[in-house]
Design a protein around this nucleic acid. Sequence first.
DNA 1: TTAGTATTTAGATAGTTGTCTAAATATATA
DNA 2: TATATATTTAGACAACTATCTAAATACTAA
Lengths: 100, 100
Amino acid sequence: MNNVFKALNDKTRRDILELLKKEDMTAGQIADHFNFSKPTISHHLDLLKQAELLTSVKKGQYIFYSLNTTVMDELLKWMLQFTAAAMPLTPKKKPGYEGK
Amino acid sequence: MNNVFKALNDKTRRDILELLKKEDMTAGQIADHFNFSKPTISHHLDLLKQAELLTSVKKGQYIFYSLNTTVMDELLKWMLQFTAAAMPLTPKKKPGYEGK
DNA sequence: TTAGTATTTAGATAGTTGTCTAAATATATA
DNA sequence: TATATATTTAGACAACTATCTAAATACTAA
């Protein structure tokens, strides 16, 4: 789970995820959308893969990358515990400070 | 939005959020839950505040910190675009590779 | 005012991260 | 085989981050 937050903590990597929302792409096609060297993009793809936000399939010379939304679902669950919708009917304890 | 991912990219800070889910606490009370110095926790609280994940109110000597779920809601929205529930009825374009 | 408590600010340091170029690996094709 | 293309690995470096101790600030209470 730590890896997921780490992976999402970078604009370029989040942009890669948005790109792949539309269609699967090869590493080269992805790199063409950014002003970074291919090794740099390759590195970002690696981190996204480690976080299991992407999957990859090699086909001939090419490696196709796809979104993996499974982890996003877990993250969603984590976040829901903080939102109003997930709050208990009895409100959380408020601090005992009584003014002065 | 960048600040939010940055703030969440640290276990201690995520633990602080979980702590505050139960009840509001002072900086000192929060610090007592961790094996880090108070300045270190103060720094983490500052980053969480910058990301607007926390609010703080000073009362006398004490500063009470509370969760602010507004940003979590925004983050939820961002994430929903990647999940199955948010997918269009027409599936995304698949790569045109035809084997060989 | 003086002493004590709560918290933050400042400055230092080790470790991590994003980026690059150069080189290596793997596949395709002539 | 030799050459070209796609991608990754390796190594270097500047910038950023988490942590610490020491000092500063702000408030409380004697």
